[in-house]
Computed example of a mutant assay.
Amino acid sequence: MASKFAIVTGASTGIGFELAHLAAQNGYDLLVVADEPLIQSAAQDFRQHPVDVQAVEADLSTMEGVDKLLSATSGRSVDLLCANAGRGLGHAFIDQEVADWRRVVDTNVTGTIYLLQKVLREMVSRDSGKILVTGSIAGYIPGSFQAVYNGTKAFIDSFTDAIRNEIKESKGVTLTTLMPGPTETEFFDRADMMDTKVGTDEKDDAGKVAKDGWEALMSGKAHIISGWQNKLQVAAAHVAPASMMAEQHRHMAEPGTAKE
Results as ranks from 00 to 15, higher is better:
23 A>M: 10
172 G>P: 02
177 T>F: 04
201 D>M: 15
242 A>E: 15
79 D>G: 12
19 L>P: 07
120 L>D: 01
143 G>L: 07
91 H>Q: 14
121 R>A: 01
205 D>P: 04
197 K>V: 05
240 A>L: 15
234 V>A: 10
214 W>Y: 08
219 S>N: 07
76 R>G: 04
83 A>Y: 01
190 R>S: 09
129 G>M: 09
83 A>R: 01
34 A>T: 02
206 A>Y: 00
64 E>S: 14
61 S>Q: 12
191 A>M: 12
189 D>G: 13
192 D>I: 08
129 G>A: 01
213 G>T: 08
94 I>S: 11
227 G>Q: 11
153 K>S: 13
8 V>M: 02
56 V>C: 03
27 G>V: 07
50 P>Q: 14
119 V>C: 10
193 M>A: 12
161 D>I: 01
29 D>R: 00
29 D>I: 04
146 Q>K: 05
36 E>V: 14
181 G>N: 06
209 V>R: 11
78 V>R: 05
185 T>G: 05
145 F>V: 04
46 F>V: 03
129 G>L: 08
220 G>A: 09
155 F>V: 04
178 L>A: 04
190 R>D: 15
69 L>A: 08
229 Q>L: 15
252 M>R: 15
251 H>L: 14
145 F>C: 09
103 R>A: 13
165 N>S: 10
193 M>R: 08
179 M>P: 00
35 D>R: 14
83 A>T: 07
62 T>I: 07
82 C>H: 06
240 A>D: 09
101 W>Y: 15
27 G>T: 12
220 G>L: 05
166 E>I: 00
77 S>R: 13
193 M>L: 10
244 M>N: 03
116 L>M: 12
260 E>F: 02
52 D>I: 06
3 S>V: 06
64 E>D: 14
150 N>S: 13
258 A>Y: 03
43 A>E: 14
154 A>D: 10
29 D>N: 05
19 L>I: 01
105 V>P: 05
90 G>M: 04
152 T>N: 06
39 I>A: 08
121 R>C: 13
15 I>M: 11
94 I>N: 14
47 R>P: 07
236 A>F: 02
42 A>K: 10
216 A>R: 02
96 Q>A: 06
15 I>S: 11
45 D>M: 13
140 Y>L: 05
224 I>C: 13
